[in-house]
Design a protein around this nucleic acid. Structure first.
Lengths: 336, 336
DNA sequence: CTGAAAGCGCTAACAT
DNA sequence: ATGTTAGCGCTTTCAG
């Protein structure tokens, strides 16, 4: 591997001068800079990130904490899509991405230790158990962090706008004449709580009565569970005219169940999903669903994190809330 | 940050001794080792990967080249699923993963340069344009590489078994009485070529005639295109009894088109997908499709790569071919 | 069994 | 405008 010393020798210059030239420092003659750059190129010089980091304490590397709890972290389109936008945004800013885990060689490390071990300039935290003490420790450490879809006190985060999500959905349903709206929600996370509150608030604001039996707890991304909840809803004396699901996969489970009962979507009953994954546009009927803006979420997380990294003193904790939009598919019937 | 020197001072030992103790070298007294380890723990010592790397030339970091060409790299379940298994397998072996790109800070780098810059011990290459000279350069460089679903001469690779895939599909179709089988394949990649050859060979072996108009070129993951091809097939005088699609998403496009014609799957026409993504199991009818073994593909890639890393002299180039399995869904009708 | 010293490749004061 | 030098944190001969 050719190093600065080699270039210096070839150019009859000192390593300091070559280093400066390579880094475009101003106090060098134009010719020297050009000369060094040319020779460096000729010799196939590639800087060594580790050596540089050791001096500068800047790694230009962002850790990503993405724990595949339910074996559906990375595999779920919502998260792989966010990861993809994180990757793109980070690359654009010249940062590399590396996953934070518990292992380094043969030794076990905490998330914080791992991030330190790799000298990450900052860490983006998504899709983990936010109650894990290790995650909390990381967030409260000296390493800049940005969390996605979870807010820690006095820390920066980027949240998909779940309040707006349910607001827009209810809005749309009411506009289409629905008054009896059921809601199958996912397991009780902070995201779910936001959706639920928003659901209740919007219904109340419109004078809609929400019988207790219209609210069912399902599980995110487990269509079977939503299928069961759907069955229970269909068997009610006073059946809802529309069911809102935790996500698009769950919606699929709901539809399957509905059809088993000989009913049709949306003629007999309307359904609404959440996420707006690709599938939702490919199905017939196209899903009516709330599309989360994953591209923007990843981008916002990176840009906030880099802001903190570059300006640790000045940067203020900030919550960015990213709105999505309602995809008006064909799974909701207009009724009077 | 506490460093070895700090521990050494506290223990009244030299940094050399502490380093050895930390790394479990044999030539130290049991007590010294324990003592050092205890103090290190008390002081909250975290090793610095960069400093270590600088000395040892081993980064314990694996580069992953995953270029989102058609904006469907990471977002496609086949790849996100492979990425996930790469991540898991690498972590188990104590390696970290970092994405290779073109950017490092403000400067543009080739893939090779980037991998060198980060001192990756090796690189796994998937989902890229394998004809890109930069990719070729990387593969032929001094950095150990393993490619996924593409074979470079004399290099290690892990391939999903596309030959077996079409063999199993044809086998199953013939067993179910199908003789008129159409094949919509994806764009002409090496993967596609393998599937096509296997398709032809298996048909021939069974004495099936394959009219030219039964073979259509579609695009991977673009349901609309497969929809169009499907229409053309349906309009043939001598319509096939079964259509094989490039992937499960495309199959979805096919079904949509088929239903538009007032036909039903599988009563009127049978269809087969490829990939076996989660969706394929959630649809009703469940897709008959070839499930690629993504978990094994990622794992095999990592284990081969690490083998080369640890034994650069001895390790031989190797092609691992990973078989999947046929998921017998309900989109193929038994005919006589 | 322990330590002294060199050096991995680089940057940044601080000279000159 | 260019060079000298120290040192980032670590491992590893080699000596003792």
């Amino acid at each position: 591997m050719v190093k600065i010393k080699d270039i210096a020798d070839k150019c009859n210059l000192s390593v300091a001068t070559v280093s400066k030239a390579l880094n475009g420092k101003s106090d060098l003659s134009r010719e020297t800079i050009d000369f060094v750059l040319r020779v460096a190129k000729e010799m196939g010089y590639i800087p060594n990130a580790s050596a540089r980091l050791l001096k500068t304490n800047r790694s230009y590397s962002i850790g990503v904490l993405f724990v595949d709890t339910t074996a559906s972290g990375l595999e779920h389109e919502y998260f792989s899509s966010i990861l993809n936008s994180i990757k793109t945004a980070a690359e654009d800013l010249g940062f590399d991405i590396t996953f934070i885990s518990h292992n380094a060689g043969k030794t076990k490390l905490t998330y914080y230790e791992h991030a330190k071990f790799r000298c990450c300039d900052g860490v983006i935290i998504a899709s983990v158990d936010f109650k894990d003490p290790e995650v909390e420790a990381l967030v409260e450490s000296d390493i800049p962090t940005v969390t996605i879809d979870y807010d820690f006190d006095n820390q920066s985060s980027v949240d998909s706008d779940n309040i707006a999500g349910l607001r827009d959905i209810i809005n749309y349903l009411v506009k289409n004449g629905h008054k009896k709206i059921a809601f199958i929600h996912g397991e009780m996370t902070s995201v779910t709580q936001k959706r639920l509150s928003s659901f209740y608030r919007e219904c109340e604001a419109r004078g809609l009565n929400v019988p207790e039996e219209y609210i069912k707890e399902g599980l995110y991304h487990v269509p079977q569970v939503s299928g069961i909840a759907t069955r229970e809803l269909l068997e009610l004396k006073d059946r809802p005219t529309c069911i809102i699901y935790p996500d698009d996969y769950s919606l699929l489970g709901g539809i399957t169940e509905i059809e088993k009962h000989g009913l049709h979507v949306p003629e007999d009953i309307s359904v609404v999903g959440y996420d707006g994954i690709r599938l939702s546009r490919l199905m017939r009927p196209v899903f009516t669903t709330y599309v989360q803006n994953t591209a923007e979420i990843g981008k916002a997380a990176v840009s906030k994190l880099v802001e903190i990294i570059e300006n640790p003193k000045i940067a203020l904790p900030e919550r960015k809330i990213i709105e999505g939009h309602l995809q008006e598919g064909n799974t909701v019937k207009k009724i009077n």
